[in-house]
Design a protein around this nucleic acid. Structure first.
Length: 268
DNA sequence: TACCAGGTGACAG
DNA sequence: CTGTCACCTGGT
């Protein structure tokens, strides 16, 4: 009983496929190998609102509850959706169990810089190479070696040149340098309001509005930030031709975006 | 084998 | 200020 996390609701597969994280590894039988910060765990889906911690490299259930965003009431947001909006109602229903993880901001920034003009498997492959070449060894599970996401100071041109980054290499290098030269910079970003944060992130070389938005939502857990990529553009054009009202679901636009994004992709 | 992918900066007009 | 375009590399 001690290793069970109850959340209302949670769906590991939906989170794994949501595109907010690039290092979850499916192990079969509904199990996922999940690295986060300085540790990793293996979870399995137990019921609609329960996951089982099968293994944790550090025994700390509270950490994983926080990572899974225990304190946010997803049910409440889904119930607040306008039932006259058939598309969003269906999207939210399909997204039941989706949660916005509390991931490391630096990892999110670098991962989304890498993501530009790449498909998900290619992104995962690049991030994996980066962790293996500059991250710390955390342990292994069923023969699978797990490494942490590298600290800014561990990232250099040599490391990056083996990660298939192409033209994104200088972007990643430049961001890593900013953080390694200013250890307090992350805290400064965390203290900013959404608008300041988005603009600060966009001042990084190679970071535009889309990468900045994804970093703010998935790395800084700014629930009201609404990333728009090619998929979202298509979804919005198709279902909200007169524009999507960002006032209606504030301050939870980010979650609404996730529901639309996920659902729209399953339709195509 | 070609084609193209969860974007961005540089440059035209 | 809005529109175009090249860009590394590896999946499918």
């Amino acid at each position: 009983m001690d290793n069970i996390i109850k959340l209302d609701p949670i769906d590991l597969s939906k989170i794994a496929n949501s595109g907010q994280c690039f290092r979850w590894k499916p192990l079969g039988d509904g199990r996922f190998l999940i690295p986060a910060r300085d540790r990793f765990a293996v979870f399995s889906q137990r019921a609609e609102n329960e996951v089982d911690i099968l293994y944790s490299s550090i025994d700390d259930k509270a950490f994983w509850e926080d990572y899974l965003d225990r304190d946010f009431d997803y049910e409440k947001i889904r119930k607040s959706i306008d039932e006259n909006d058939g598309f969003l109602t269906a999207a939210a229903h399909a997204g039941k169990g989706l949660r916005i993880l509390r991931q490391d901001p630096f990892e999110a920034l670098i991962s989304f810089i890498i993501s530009q003009r790449k498909n998900i498997p290619a992104i995962s492959s690049c991030v994996e190479k980066l962790c293996r070449s500059a991250g710390e060894f955390l342990g292994s599970f069923e023969g699978e070696e797990v490494y942490s996401f590298p600290k800014p100071s561990a990232i250099n041109e040599d490391v990056l040149s083996g990660c298939s980054l192409g033209y994104r290499l200088p972007y990643v290098l430049s961001a890593a340098k900013v953080f390694s030269k200013n250890p307090g910079f992350l805290d400064k970003l965390s203290e900013m309001d959404d608008e300041e944060l988005l603009s600060a992130l966009q001042s990084f070389y190679g970071v535009g509005i889309k990468v900045a938005s994804c970093t703010a939502l998935f790395g800084f857990h700014r629930m009201n930030v609404f990333p728009v990529d090619v998929w979202m553009k298509r979804a919005l054009n198709e279902h909200y031709p007169t524009g999507f009202d960002l006032k209606k679901y504030a301050p939870n636009n980010g979650l609404i975006q996730q529901y639309i994004f996920e659902y729209y992709k399953t339709l195509t």
